[in-house]
């Protein structure tokens, strides 16, 4: 095993080009477990800790450019307003110690369906900034996950940052685990209201081979909200709409039975979380609307 310690992003890209099998290590929260338990013996470890810009973020007009190694703790503490869904998801990641080390880049690189950040990224809308010595490209989040623990990165590419749409409305995130902290998701659900485009986006974790959006549920809800004039009125979403949305979210799952839970439970729980997160975000939206009315 060789330990590569690039001092700059350019050196890191060069190293990855020279050794495409090199395994990037930043927070170490996935890679080191595999090494400690003898599950993996990479030829090269590519340490990204010395590259300061990976832990920086920029808040732009439309997007937040989030460095791949910005720790979850920093997201929780600093980006709650811009990225409320991801901040909530970050808070569910493992333990304080892990949140101090791990970042979204690691979640994306590992591309486990159980990664906590994925549903929030899918719901908010995001692009992955991938770079190699050949150049930089933006991969839409919907095209990023290609299979169980597989992603759209080329062998010589590294994740530089994630560009996440700044919230234009309420976002929520829920995760089921059989413990009240420090638990891998049995399944998870993210939901974001986008009042500017009058759309709702979702993300499902751990209930399909890859993180997925509940597209049929989104389409149904978008149409129902539009037809009922809900975005303007801020009226309460009726139980039948919420129920249909929840059922369609369940239907978007393609889960398996494993030691963490049954497929049937995962479908069921995703439906419950879909209904609840819709309720919470919509109440927040109505509250905001009312506040605005009051102010006007």
């Amino acid at each position: 095993m060789d330990f590569l310690r690039p001092a700059s992003w350019e050196e890191a890209l060069a190293a990855k080009a020279e050794h495409p099998t090199a395994v990037p290590i930043a927070g170490g929260t996935d890679v080191m477990v595999e090494i400690n338990f003898d599950h993996r013996r990479p030829e090269y470890l590519l340490d990204l800790n010395r590259i300061g810009e990976l832990t920086e973020w920029e808040v732009g007009g439309e997007n937040v450019r989030l460095g791949a190694s910005v720790p979850y703790t920093a997201i929780m503490e600093n980006l709650r307003a811009e990225l409320p869904g991801l901040a909530l998801a970050s808070h569910t990641v493992a333990s304080p110690q892990i949140r101090n080390r791990g970042g979204v880049g690691g979640n994306l690189g590992t591309a486990s369906p159980a990664g906590d950040a994925h549903p929030a990224l899918l719901a908010a809308g995001a692009e992955v900034e991938a770079e190699s010595v050949r150049g930089s490209r933006m991969i839409p989040i919907d095209e990023f996950y290609t299979g169980v623990k597989r992603n759209a990165l080329a062998a010589d590419e590294l994740i530089r940052a994630v560009h996440i749409k700044k919230a234009d409305g309420p976002q929520q995130y829920s995760k089921v685990g059989t413990r009240n902290a420090m638990v891998i998701a049995v399944c998870a659900f993210g939901l974001a209201l986008h009042p500017e485009t009058r759309t709702v986006r979702t993300g499902i974790g751990s209930a399909a081979p890859t993180p997925v959006r509940a597209r049929a549920a989104e389409d149904f809800l978008n149409a129902a909200l539009e037809e009922g004039g809900f975005w303007e009125s801020g009226n309460i979403i009726t139980p039948s709409v919420a129920k249909q949305f929840a059922q369609l979210a369940s239907g978007a799952c393609n889960p398996i039975d494993d030691v963490r839970g049954t497929a049937k439970y995962r479908r069921h729980a995703v439906g419950i979380m879909a209904r609840r997160t819709l309720g919470w975000t919509w109440e927040q939206y109505r509250g905001t609307a009312r506040t605005l009315e009051g102010a006007a």
Partner: peptide, 29 residues
């Protein structure tokens, strides 16, 4: 546990509490 699940190896790395079992030795240079 050596898998970041128990916190028994917690140290401060540049002031921040981390699981030292999940920090590669080369990363602390």
């Amino acid at each position: 546990c050596e898998q970041g699940e128990c916190g028994s190896c917690t140290v401060r790395l540049d002031g921040v509490p981390v699981c030292s079992c999940l920090v590669a030795a080369g990363q602390v240079e």
